[in-house]
């Protein structure tokens, strides 16, 4: 196992994601407190921490669903604007902790919605149905089927999302996110509620996504999943980044153990 501890970005190629001092305050509560995170090309970064540590809020800040109180976020050197759809257009895509598919659309339609920001046909074109419209629609469908195949559920293309089994819903959400042609994929607890087989296949899927050239940030509570998959792991505790390093470094760090299990009781 020799993975570079921190993929030091060179000046020539900016990192895929660069977050500097991201802070989010709700009323009196500082949910995210000056978190820095860098993600390099084809890197899988794990984000762990106890419940309420601010992981999802951090994701929300990255994707523009919450406006950070302060801090700067840039994707491949370009600062991201606050609006979620703009962020997605720039190349960040995400899944949700509590699956948020469009329940009454079919699996295929869900993925097609993901194509929205990579297609451009407007109202007049939809009304006229010219050759360009039809080409784009056909391309979109082809790509959607391809993605469904990639996550292994092409045969459920015409099933309403609500009727899919839980594991398939998670995979469909990933396919939908991939449809936006992202450079960075943010996965929020992709294996929550899965059995060991499903978790294993999810792990496979994440690896295959990386092989496609994407960088990935993943929030997870399943430590085996995190430590066998991630190049680098960051630990968030009470909104602050406590430790960042390789799986082994993080596992051995006493502060992490303390954060999860509490301070060991001193003899005196």
């Amino acid at each position: 196992m020799s993975v570079s501890a921190s993929s030091a970005p060179t000046a020539a190629t900016p990192p895929v994601l660069e977050a500097r001092g991201v802070t989010k305050v709700f009323g009196g509560l500082t949910a995210v407190d000056g978190v820095d995170l860098e993600v390099g090309e084809r890197e899988i970064v794990g984000l762990i921490g106890p419940n309420g540590a601010g992981k999802t809020t951090f994701f929300n800040c990255l994707t523009g669903m919450e406006t950070p109180t302060s801090g700067r976020i840039s994707y491949r050197g370009r600062t991201l604007s606050g609006k979620p759809h703009r962020v997605t257009e720039s190349g960040l895509a995400r899944t949700f902790q509590n699956i948020r598919l469009f329940p009454n659309m079919t699996a295929l339609e869900n993925v097609l919605v993901g194509r929205h920001c990579r297609t451009s046909q407007g109202v007049l074109s939809a009304l006229g149905r010219g050759p360009r419209y039809r080409r784009e629609e056909a391309d979109g469908r082809a790509r959607a089927h391809e993605l469904l195949q990639f996550v292994g559920m092409d045969r459920h293309a015409e099933t309403l999302a609500r009727n899919l089994p839980y594991g398939d819903q998670r995979r469909l959400e990933i396919a939908r996110a991939l449809a936006t042609d992202p450079g960075l994929l943010l996965l929020d607890e992709p294996t929550a509620g899965m059995n060991p087989q499903e978790t294993a296949s999810a792990m496979q899927l994440v690896r295959r996504i990386r092989e496609q050239g994407l960088a990935i940030v993943v929030i997870e509570h399943d430590m085996r999943f995190i430590f066998s998959l991630c190049d680098r792991v960051a630990v968030l505790v009470q909104g602050q980044k406590l430790v960042e390093g390789t799986a082994t470094e993080v596992q051995q760090d006493p502060r992490v153990v303390e954060a999860y299990l509490g301070k060991p009781v001193d003899g005196g």
């Binding site: 609006k83 979620p84 948020r100 598919l101 469009f102 996110a177």
Partner: peptide, 11 residues
């Protein structure tokens, strides 16, 4: 169906 998710999908 879900406005937040729609926005997150680039709409």
């Amino acid at each position: 169906e879900d406005e937040t998710a729609a926005a997150a999908m680039g709409i």
